[in-house]
Write a protein that binds this DNA or RNA. Structure first.
Length: 430
DNA sequence: TCTGGGGTCCTAGGACCC
DNA sequence: TCTGGGGTCCTAGGACCC
């Protein structure tokens, strides 16, 4: 038996500061130092804010239509969301982080968990190196939180942003148990990763106010009241690593396509158009990952901000797992169409696919196809759109027409500077 | 008057996250 | 006038089986 104790491996979370805003700033330096917000689809509400915008007390998810006048008066600059740009910069960052670790979980578009080994000092030094490299090679500012569990790493990450002295890297291993307790006492329980507003209220009712209170609470009691998820949060706050890194979450287990409309719809004809487009988009994603779906859910809802809010939802199973957009569309309109009430204004429709199996495992079942003459519409669509672009071909009502009343509004969208030759940034010499 | 019990599968919905 | 979108995990409860 060796007497030397290997240092416990550290879990680091690397996340980009104000990610969408930072992406916008890379190709538009005039946004630097100014209050900037990025808006959701339809330019509906605020989904990212620069530090300057946060300082102006602009809330997350604030509806843009109700704050735009005052915000612009304060010099706030709004951008429509440009997911193609963000996705590309995210992929580059993921690749770069991968060079520093053997174990990486891509948690969201702007966050990765990575495992780092070494003494606390070495790990902190690596984190600083990462921070410099991402800024220099990609242009994004990132912060790093380090601890022995994901939940504590997330808290450290918050700290790395709020304490300027830390310069973007916070390693909880640098603190004594007493200091750690002081830190956790200063964090409201609702700020802990995995504790949402509902649970936070109930915990407060039990006298658990801070992250430290939750850490020191009775685990059995927490589990019986809230379930296994919250008990794991508690154990993670004690430093126990209960949530392993998921390096390859290979395929989605659910694919959904849903949008809100800038102008509501009321007729079955309009619903046909929407479902035609949505089923084609959802089916394309399904084929992209090589899956077949056995279950589909569809819904149409009126505005949740109005009286008489209703949602019509249907759930349907396919006789054989499928990736065929035609079959999906027919099933969707047959089930959802009759639910529609002509006096209502529907502002949102969604299609989701579930219960997947690999598409190659069903080849032998082709003899059960109800229509032996059916051609593979999905595969043909994929081939053509891959070659000529997504807007070149569509089926039926989801075809080439543009300017539908319900298409998305994106009035302030930036160029797709890293993925389209025609939208490259121009550098002016002077 | 009294009307089993345990297991599995499935789905809807809650809660949470970014 | 105008309030996002895409996920995951867990649990309760119904259907069904023996």
């Amino acid at each position: 038996m060796s007497e030397t104790k290997a240092p416990a491996p550290s879990i680091a979370i690397v996340d980009a500061n104000n990610f969408y805003v930072s992406c916008e700033r890379i190709f538009n330096p005039k946004l630097e130092g100014k209050p900037v917000v990025v808006l959701s689809n339809n330019d509906g509400c605020v989904i990212a804010r620069s530090q300057e915008a946060k300082a102006l007390k602009i809330d997350m998810a604030a509806p843009w239509h109700s704050i735009s006048a005052e915000a612009t008066a304060h010099g706030v600059i709004a951008r429509s969301s440009n997911y193609e740009l963000y996705g590309d910069l995210s992929a580059r960052t993921v690749e770069l982080l991968g060079r520093y670790t053997s174990s990486q979980e891509v948690y969201s578009i702007d966050e990765s968990f990575i495992r780092l080994t070494g003494t606390p000092g070495e790990v902190t030094a690596t984190a600083r190196e990462i921070r410099t490299a991402v800024k220099k090679l990609i242009g994004l500012p990132v912060s790093v939180g380090i601890a022995t569990s994901k939940t504590l790493a997330k808290l450290a990450n918050r700290g790395s942003k709020t304490a300027p002295a830390l310069a973007g890297v916070c390693n909880l291993a640098a603190y004594s148990p007493e200091q750690l307790t002081t830190i956790l006492t200063s964090i409201e329980v609702g700020q802990v990763w995995g504790i949402g507003a509902r649970t936070a209220q109930k915990l407060i009712g039990m006298g658990i106010y801070s992250a430290a209170d939750l850490r020191d609470a009775d685990a059995v009691r927490v589990r019986s009241r809230f379930g296994v998820v919250q008990e794991r949060v508690l154990q993670e706050l004690r430093g126990l690593d209960c949530l392993p890194l998921e390096e390859l979450r290979a395929d989605k287990e659910q694919i959904q396509f849903s949008r809100s409309f800038s102008i509501p719809i009321s007729t079955v004809h309009e619903l046909r158009e929407v479902l035609s487009v949505y089923t084609q988009r959802a089916a394309a994603r399904l084929r992209e990952q090589g899956s077949l779906a056995r279950l589909m859910r569809c819904y149409a809802s009126t505005s949740p901000f109005k009286e008489d809010h209703v949602t019509h939802a249907v759930s349907l199973a396919f006789p054989n797992p499928t990736d065929d957009p035609v079959e999906m569309y027919r099933a969707a309109i047959a089930a959802l169409g009759p639910q529609l009430q002509s006096h209502r204004k529907y502002v949102r429709v969604g299609v989701s696919l579930h219960d997947f199996s690999p598409s190659d495992s069903h080849a032998a079942l082709d003899i059960f196809d109800t229509d032996p003459a059916a051609f593979k519409a999905g595969a043909v669509l994929d081939a053509i759109t891959a070659k000529y672009g997504a807007d070149t071909l569509g089926l039926g009502l989801g075809g080439l027409r543009t300017n539908r009343a319900w298409t998305m509004r994106r009035d302030m969208v930036s160029p797709r500077a890293t993925t389209h030759w025609s939208e490259l940034a121009t550098v002016h010499a002077r």
